[in-house]
Design a binder for these strands. Structure first.
Length: 700
DNA sequence: GAGCACTGC
């Protein structure tokens, strides 16, 4: 075939995109509607994974770590725990655990399995996620849980002695708690040789897990290995992958063009387009809408729909509704559709090849949110989202030469960097210390964080007085900060609130900063202005923390039982309800610690001072031009437009903030006005007064 | 003067 070129706006993908014969797999859904008339047992036996049952059980018997490779949806998560249960791994009151990175996955899989086992959910089969424990300590044999929950369980049962087998699902996603859990399991296995670990992973990552768990064994004699890789291939619908002949310089324009090309030339089936963020999605949908008139009169219609996490739940629900007759649904989504949200009937994928990724910069102590090429693992996962119900096609908006497998200098990585290597790890290091691992530098991380990340995190924990100069947890403060389910900064503020007699309010503020998007912010236009006007009703002069407090108090008084009240005031009902649960949970911790919960009775100075005891490192001073300078690094900062401080000036010239995220600029989020003297008074170890202004002083 | 990807305890 002669070489072909494709330019946005000219040719169709069918002829212009380089057809690639390699197919990315996607398997049949676990139980098929076509076999619904069969008994549950008969259905289970027809699953592709069933023919691997004996092999799997043999491997678990013989090896301590079994790495199971297979696509999402092949029945790993539902079937393997049942197989283990059936052959006796749950005898003698032992439990088979299966961890999931997300709450919905834990609950939905548990519900499915309870049905298959014929158990009431919470009895023989149960689940445990934050705020919901549907499991019985005596009767539950198969327990699904979030990985964070199992990690926490190590604090009360360091050897996880209740469990005979622990299956870590979706390990290839490399979430922080997945990595930490694997590290702990490796440690636990030395003391509990009978424990079995099953790791479910995508193909690309299996070798990493294998090396990790065999690193202590003799490589010359593989028969003595601790770990083994088992591959579960099953029936799949092929997904044909096509590439651009030439790189494009505007993937948004290319995405619009490709959508129209698919629409006019390919058979029916919905389209899922992967883009990087809300702004981009809104703009692309606008471009598509503008071009709709150009469709031939007789042609089927296009229904463009957005999907991103901050979209209000009601608008998210629309993507699951069937489209009108003769209409093709086109969903423009962020990464949320890569694993968290599954949409049926998607036959076409358009993949920009990019993702927005948050990375912590230990030098500046700030998070950076950047658009970067997605990993090959991500691209494969995205392709697999077509063809869940039939054969599919994936259009990648970059040339095949961009693949890291074909081009070693490609900017596209094989895997997304693990979360632990690109996050502020102070929380995780503290929790490891709470598990008795004092020398965190020696912890056997699957991917060790950089030493700079380590040092920064330890320095900060020291400044919070959570660890002493020996690096040990302080008592009781450090131990308690580690225990409370909050980031260390906010945990310290909550625990210090006893001394400032304002725990009542700090509980609320801590809960509110733990949830996102309390105020609904439509993008642009009349709606945005209306939302802004509504938010002003809650605005406090002192800044965002007190504004959040006002919103919460109004919610509990008027909105908790009245969803429409929230709608009228542009408040996010789901987020506020969650804040209520979090507050309730945090309150229990304070009660257990014997901390008296008092109100500041309107004395907001006490409240703001208390915030300084945790936020001290996040202080900034306003400059005459309206920008800010961070107290420590003297870095240029800006107020985020969502902050109530965006339109006002701090009377004292100083603010503290919850976090900085760098996008187009470095934006501070959640600000509170403070007095300069408080910084020196409340964090003398961090700041020393000298001359006319704050002089930073940092103890090494 | 103008904007946050996604999870989790």
């Amino acid at each position: 075939m002669p070489p072909q070129f494709w330019k946005p706006g000219t040719a169709a993908p069918g002829s212009s995109l380089d057809r690639d014969t390699e197919t990315e797999g996607s398997l049949l859904p676990s139980l098929n509607p076509q076999t619904a008339h069969l008994s549950l047992d008969a259905q289970r036996q027809r699953l592709p994974i069933y023919k691997h049952r004996e092999k799997l059980l043999w491997c678990v018997e013989k090896y301590r770590v079994v790495i199971v490779v297979g696509q999402t949806g092949c029945g790993k998560s539902t079937q393997i725990p049942q197989y283990l249960h059936e052959v006796g791994w749950t005898s003698q009151n032992l439990v088979v655990a299966c961890t999931q990175p997300r709450r919905v996955a834990a609950t939905s899989v548990a519900t499915r399995v309870a049905e298959e086992v014929g158990s009431v959910l919470g009895d023989e089969v149960g689940y445990s996620i934050r705020f919901e424990d549907l499991s019985s300590p005596t009767r539950t044999r198969i327990k699904y849980m979030t990985d964070g929950m199992l990690f926490r369980e190590c604090m009360t049962d360091p050897l996880l002695s209740r469990y005979s087998v622990i299956m870590v699902d979706e390990a290839h996603e490399r979430g922080a708690y997945t990595d930490l859990l694997l590290g702990l399991l490796k440690k636990i296995m030395r003391k509990r040789p009978e424990l079995r670990v099953i790791i479910s992973s995508a193909t690309i990552d299996a070798e990493d897990f294998y090396e990790y768990f065999n690193s202590n064994s003799d490589h010359a004699d593989r028969s003595k290995d601790d770990a083994i890789i088992v591959s579960l291939e099953g029936r799949m619908f092929p997904v044909e992958v096509c590439y651009l002949k030439q790189p494009c310089d505007d993937y948004c324009a290319a995405a619009v063009q490709t959508v129209f090309d698919i629409h006019l030339r390919e058979p029916s089936g919905d389209i899922l387009v992967f883009l990087t963020g809300r702004e981009e999605i809104d703009s692309v949908i606008q471009q598509v809408t503008d071009r709709l008139q150009s469709l031939p009169r007789a042609a089927p219609q296009i229904l463009p729909l957005p999907l991103y996490a901050t979209l209000p739940a009601e608008e998210q629900a629309i993507i699951f509704e069937p489209p009108p007759r003769d209409t093709r649904k086109v969903i423009f989504s962020t990464n949320i559709a890569e694993a968290s949200v599954t949409i049926d009937n998607i036959r076409y994928i358009v993949d920009s090849g990019f993702v927005k990724l948050k990375t912590f910069n230990p030098r500046t102590n700030m998070d950076v949110l950047t658009v970067t090429p997605c990993s090959l693992a991500s691209a494969n996962q995205r392709a697999g989202r077509a063809g869940r119900t039939s054969a599919g096609k994936c259009f990648r908006l970059y040339p095949a030469s961009m693949l890291p497998t074909r081009n070693p200098r490609s900017p596209m990585p094989l895997q997304t960097p693990p979360e632990l290597t690109r996050s502020d790890i102070s929380l995780y290091l503290l929790q490891l210390k709470a598990l008795g691992i004092d020398n965190v530098a020696k912890f056997d991380f699957l991917s060790p964080p950089s030493s700079e990340m380590m040092i920064r995190a330890l320095e900060f924990l020291y400044c919070l007085k959570a660890i002493d100069d020996e690096g040990r947890l302080t008592r009781p403060l450090g131990e308690r900060i580690a225990e409370v389910p909050l980031d260390p900064m906010m945990a310290a503020i909550l625990l210090n609130s006893a001394a400032f007699k304002c725990s009542e309010e700090i509980l609320t503020i801590a809960a509110m900063t733990s949830v996102q998007d309390v105020f609904i912010q439509p993008s642009g236009g009349m709606k945005a202005t209306m939302a802004e006007l509504e938010r002003r009703k809650f605005t406090a002069e002192e800044g965002d923390h007190l504004t959040l407090l006002n919103a919460y108090n109004a919610f509990t008084r008027f909105g908790a039982k009245d969803k429409s009240w929230c709608g009228n005031h542009r408040l996010n009902f789901k987020a506020l309800s969650r804040a209520m649960s979090i507050r309730k949970q945090l309150k229990k911790y304070l009660e257990r610690f014997g901390i008296k919960i008092q109100s500041c009775e309107g004395d907001v100075v006490r409240l703001r001072k208390c915030l300084v005891t945790g936020y001290f490192k996040n202080a900034a001073r306003m400059m005459p031009d309206g920008s800010y300078r961070s107290a420590r690094e003297n870095a240029i900062l800006h107020v985020h437009p969502n902050s109530v401080m965006f339109t006002r000036q701090p009377s004292t010239g100083w603010v503290i903030y919850h976090e900085v995220v760098e996008t187009t600029k470095r934006f501070m989020r959640d600000l509170t006005v403070v007095e300069e003297e408080w910084l020196v008074e409340l964090a003398p170890h961090y700041y020393q007064f000298k001359g006319g202004g704050i002089k930073k002083h940092f103890k090494d």
